[in-house]
């Protein structure tokens, strides 16, 4: 279980998170939704120590990890993988080396063993035949799949997906959605998905939290969101240009 407790975060003069409290239950898929720039990425990066809160606490399975050092976060990052918005494969490495990187770094395995494991993970996403090619050769959909394979190499308990379907064609987006669902159903992986893709939200999420003006506006099931009478929530899920939300 993940608990964010009253997280505040500012960058210089800019207040981004103003008291965010949120709980993520084990084995479930939580979607964090909200407009671009509200701080969804900022929030999820607090879980793995890529950002530190100004105040507030972060708990992972009951352990307060807020004040961990960078080194102490390494095991946390092994358990909570992250698929970044930009895929962030390393351009200078082959797909295989990209996927093998976490195995090498976290498990400190020999090259040969690491590569064999990595190849297995690439096979999971159907990319094993392209293992020796470079990321630049592929489109966004395939790169995203490889990025997901890389995140799964260490068999994490938690996976953070930052806008996994943004910029993908509808078919790739569906494949990614299904992968997220499968991870949870078959392996019991807990997923936090940052998204504003309405289709993914309502087809995949077990629970949704909406971030608005630095706070959680609504936290509930997809059903609760559909029925919500909050104009802000309504405007977001209907995508209407008119409403209380400032664009």
């Amino acid at each position: 279980m993940i608990v964010f407790d009253d997280i505040h975060k500012r960058f210089g003069p800019k207040l981004v998170l103003e008291g965010v409290s949120l709980t993520v239950a084990k084995g479930r898929i939580l979607f964090i939704i909200g407009q671009s720039g509200v701080g969804k990425s900022v929030l999820v990066k607090h879980l793995v120590g890529l950002l530190r809160p100004d105040s507030g606490r972060v708990f992972l399975d009951g352990v307060d990890i807020t004040d961990y050092s960078e080194k102490q976060f390494y095991p946390v990052r092994k358990r909570c993988a992250m698929v970044f918005q930009n895929s962030t494969l390393f351009d200078s490495m082959t797909l295989l080396d990209n996927v093998a990187l976490p195995i090498r770094k976290h498990k400190r395995l020999r090259d040969k063993v690491a590569r064999r494991e990595a190849l297995g993970k690439l096979a999971l996403v159907g990319m094993e035949n392209e293992a020796l090619r470079y990321p630049a050769d592929f489109g966004d959909g395939m790169r995203k799949k490889v990025a997901i394979a890389r995140a799964l190499t260490l068999d994490p308990e938690y996976v953070i997906f930052d806008e996994p379907t943004t910029g993908l064609d509808p078919i790739s987006a569906n494949i990614v959605d299904r992968m997220i669902r499968d991870l949870s159903d078959r392996l019991g992986v807990t997923s936090i998905v940052v998204s504003h893709d309405l289709k993914s939200i309502f087809s995949v999420a077990d629970r949704i939290a909406m971030l608005y003006k630095g706070q959680i506006r609504l936290d509930g099931t997809p059903e609760a969101f559909r029925r919500s009478e909050d104009p802000v929530v309504q405007q977001f899920i209907s995508g209407s240009p008119e409403g209380p939300m400032e664009v």
């Binding site: 990052r77 993988a81 390393f90 990187l101």
Partner: peptide
């Protein structure tokens, strides 16, 4: 492009 974050995620 978050590659530095990705490095940090990989210890």
């Amino acid at each position: 492009t978050e590659q530095v974050d990705a490095l940090r995620m990989n210890a």
